[in-house]
Design a protein around this nucleic acid. Sequence first.
DNA 1: CGATAGGATTTTTTT
DNA 2: AATCCTATCG
Length: 794
Amino acid sequence: MLAQDRAAAGAQMPLLAHLNPEQRAAVTLPAGHALILAGAGSGKTRVLTTRIAWLLQTGQAAPGEILAVTFTNKAAKEMLTRLSAMLPISVRGMWIGTFHGLCNRMLRAHHKLVGLPQTFQILDAQDQLSAVKRLLKAHQVDEEHHPPRQVAWFINGCKEEGLRPDAVPAPNDETRQRVELYRLYEAQCQREGVVDFAELLLRSYELLRDHAPVRAHYQRRFAHILVDEFQDTNRLQYLWLKQLAGDVVDGQFTPRGSVMAVGDDDQSIYAFRGARVGNMQDFVREFAVGQQIKLEENYRSCSNILDSANALIAHNSRRLGKNLRTARGPGEPVRIHEAESDLMEARWLVDEIRQLAADGMARQHIAVLYRSNAQSRALESQLFNAGVPYRVYGGLRFFERAEIKHALAYLRLLENPHDDTSFARVVNFPPRGIGARTLEVLQDAARAAGCSLWDAVSSVGGSAGTKLGGFVALVEVMRERSSGQSLRAIIEQVVEGSGLAGHYRQDKEGEDRLDNLKELVSAAESFVMQEGFGRDAVALPVDETAALTQSPVSQGVDPDAPMGGPQLDAAAGETLSPLVAFLTHAALEAGDNQAQAGQDAVQLMTVHASKGLEFDAVFICGLEEGLFPHENAMADQGGLEEERRLMYVAITRARKRLYLSHAQVRMLHGQTRYNMASRFFDELPEGALKHLTPQRRSAGSFATDYRAYSERQSRVSGGFDLDYSSLGSAGLPARKEAPAHGITQGAQVFHTKFGEGRVLAIEGQGEDARAQVAFTRHGTKWLALAIAKLTLVE
DNA sequence: CGATAGGATTTTTTT
DNA sequence: AATCCTATCG
């Protein structure tokens, strides 16, 4: 049967009734590998969930044969929710979750094979950084030369490429040293029984790669694999998928099973953290994908908005090619506003928002998007002053708060005292007179003996009388008191017993923190209620195996045993304690990163955070050269294209109304900056736009009309101490002389020592004038124009 | 040992 | 401007 016929036949099914032909074709594809190019707002999640439902309903798959992978817990939950609304049957048995969640599950099940304790703890980014710092200190590595952040970044980068230290190419000394640190870091983690995020994936990949029976089992089991947001996968995630859906023999890959990858290359905005859009092309080639379906019908935006998005993204090369269309009318034009300053931009925005609200638009359907978090402050203060309720996304999440991390560290120590990260975190918190000196001695002892800090206590004379000994005794007492207790009782007991509660009661500003600690108890309570210790599909660390297998099989895989069978899935019989399950949950799902669950509040967030959301009205602020596109993104090839995709994502969030704004003057990092309008303005179709302020030149037209820009630049520079509010948008102040040096923002310049570069920003005047120049070969530098010999290049 | 002052350091971020 | 980290002082 041809795809069309099948789709037509399927139209009878209520499940498929509300799908358009493209969507229906995707949902009803025959088994085999497929790539679905799903444009923004084209019903991607709907297709994914309906596909699963359809597979089950037509009897092509049993729930246990389905694996669906997402990036965020939110997406996984969303899928599960929609699915259970669609299906009468239980979703139990399906593996639906994040890459990390699923890998965690596999590792718990096969912990012995991969050489981990079943109760291994997971390091989040913070934990990892402090682990690296400890490592550097222990090995007396110069932090100037190897900044902890960069070392961590290097290690994660290697892991995400699927490389262990031995396999990392090290062309120079610098890299060789980092590889050595990577090696030491691994040893440290292994000794402590902890695993970072990237390690979850890498170990899980190696488990599949190196243990044929396990691989065969999961390959058989997951006859249908679905991957969401495929454009965001990194190399390791792709390798992991290949293990699950094919065999690699002598470097030759033979696909098997059925993988449906859903993604949108135009919405790839995470290349900066290792995402590889190229995986889409590789997937098509290596899996010999026969079926590619494009979902180009957009159900979200009016055509002026969509046309703008299409026109913008058309400026990118290397696209798979896709054009969104909508059946909705043109709608309103895209409104463009130029403000004198960031402050005026915020004021204008507040006025506009009030107007929208007065016209009946719900505030929660209005979003204000910006490129970087630093921009939110100015916006917030204006909204606050005007009394407009708002809600900011981003920032610390619940399980990342210091007091919560402290409490979790104590809990982790109960479970595994050799977790040095946790030990170091709370050994002197609340303060109990154990200082840096003592710790240093302890750390040296631990390193010399090759043991954990915990075990080293006795060797530095940490008997019961000493402060260190007291700490050890305290933890041991808490552990004893915890045995046999409910999770709630354990946490309450630890919060009190550790002295955390007492400490924050003393602190006059500790009230919020105390509340959060109480909240931790409720979080644990509801975790126990909802997840039944994680036996549920999303958050569950250990899978359904406990339910599947009655007989206590203590180890996951016996290579000689017949392949398949549920016992391969997990170490049944070994149920995780509620505490370990909860700690895992805390690490893998750090909680909401949105502020107070506001009633009817305007939503503020970065463009990145807005991905996947939609709003009636969207404001995109700070559309200036250097900010959006961000100057730091321009350093490498492809940086501008990623910025453009980011802009594309931002535009396509809007349903009915879209505002784009920029400011001439902006305070950034405590400095006044004069920015040109973003080049993205020049990439939008004039017919879809409406300029709310008199039009001026933006960056893109700069090269062709240097004089006009130079006039403007000098004009703005002249307004240094002006009250911006007095600068009406129509009334231009008197023109001032152009700077004598002739160097302007955006100009191509030459320096005798650094070579060619582009001027990113200029500040100050006369003798004090300085320019920030991005040199092609020597990075970005600030140069005093009176001193540096810069010449203009045509 | 702990508090405080100075200094660097600021894209985006999930797990 | 604001925050986070380090070095120094009491």
